[in-house]
């Protein structure tokens, strides 16, 4: 060992504080603050009284709290309805994307298909288009099939938008799932369906949960399609409903209720992620192959 590192450690000891070990926690706190500051602002706004919301200068940390905005949300609007609509549309489109995407991914990973590369390239290219580019086309489709004010008008496009991601993620998951497992199941006497249900599916649950959550979030937050294809009040989803909250007069912007709607609209997603995080961390595949 040279003397140089020693002298560094000596100077550290003399100063009493190990600055290096502080850098990481500080950096983490800063990054978290940076990311969550807008969320925090919304959260605080949703529980401020109206006076504090419109006060100049801004009240950053309120002393008075109220649940009035939340109560208004449910009293003046069918907010439960919006939540249910969002949940139904997001869940249905997610299940559809997983139900179509997972088998497709499995086929792409396991069968030696002829045009496999072409198919994958096609799937990848689809993801490059911003959904907004498809908007006019989809509008026409919805008109022709008269799907307006029908949940299908949202479920189908959401599922389609999430399908490429589902296929790509699930395919790479299936690729690293050892083929020996399925062969072993065959030798044991499982038929194809039995193998898929009893061996492949349980091992695939973490990956399904991950891609499912991503698909669910995308569908839950989607705005433009939901705004255009659904006009009936009772069928609206949370993002659309939140944006259309009106004040008592046209001059009043209802910051409080909007913030409350935002918080309520995000809460299910947070719960969902927290719930599935455990499943994902379990890491079921570990131990399938060598140690």
């Amino acid at each position: 060992m040279t003397t140089f590192p020693e002298s560094v450690s000596k100077s550290q000891r003399s100063s009493g504080i190990n600055w290096r070990s502080l850098i990481l926690p500080i950096a983490v706190i800063l990054v978290v603050l940076f990311c969550l500051a807008p969320v925090l602002w919304q959260l605080l706004t949703s529980v401020k009284v109206n006076q504090d919301i419109s006060a100049v200068p801004s009240v950053y940390f309120p002393r008075r709290f109220t649940l009035e905005h939340y109560q208004q949300l449910f009293a003046r609007r069918p907010f439960w309805n919006y939540l249910l609509n969002s949940f139904f549309v997001a869940a249905a489109s997610t299940l559809l994307a997983l139900g179509l995407g997972a088998p497709a991914a499995y086929a792409l990973a396991r069968l030696r298909l002829q045009g496999e590369r072409v198919i994958l390239a096609g799937v990848l290219i689809v993801t490059l288009f911003p959904p907004i580019l498809l908007f006019l086309g989809l509008l026409r489709v919805v008109q022709v099939l008269s799907l307006g004010d029908n949940y299908l008008a949202l479920v189908l496009p959401y599922a389609a938008i999430n399908l490429p991601l589902t296929i790509l993620v699930m395919r790479s998951f299936f690729e690293q799932l050892p083929r020996d497992l399925e062969d072993s199941a065959k030798v044991d006497g499982y038929n194809t369906v039995g193998t898929l249900l009893n061996i492949v599916l349980p091992l695939t649950l973490p990956a399904l949960a991950t891609t499912g959550i991503l698909a669910f979030i995308t569908a839950w937050n989607e705005f433009i399609f939901a705004l255009t294809f659904i006009t009936r009040e009772s069928m609206k989803t949370v993002p659309v409903a939140a944006s259309q909250l009106g004040g008592a007069s046209i001059f009043e912007i209802p910051y409080g209720p909007i913030a409350a709607a935002t918080v309520l609209g995000t809460l299910p997603l947070v719960l969902l992620v927290l719930f599935f995080q455990r499943q994902i961390i379990q890491g079921l595949t570990s131990g399938a192959v060598k140690g």
Binding site: P178, D180, L181, D183, S184, A185, K186, V187, D188, G189, Y190, I199, P202, L203, L284, T285, S286, G287, A288, V289, K290
Partner: peptide, 20 residues
């Protein structure tokens, strides 16, 4: 015949134990 009808048993290189 399919593998299950042959009355054979196999040890795979990766052991292929069902992890779950």
């Amino acid at each position: 015949l399919s593998p299950s009808d042959r009355n054979i048993a196999m040890v795979f290189q990766s052991y292929a134990l069902y992890p779950h």
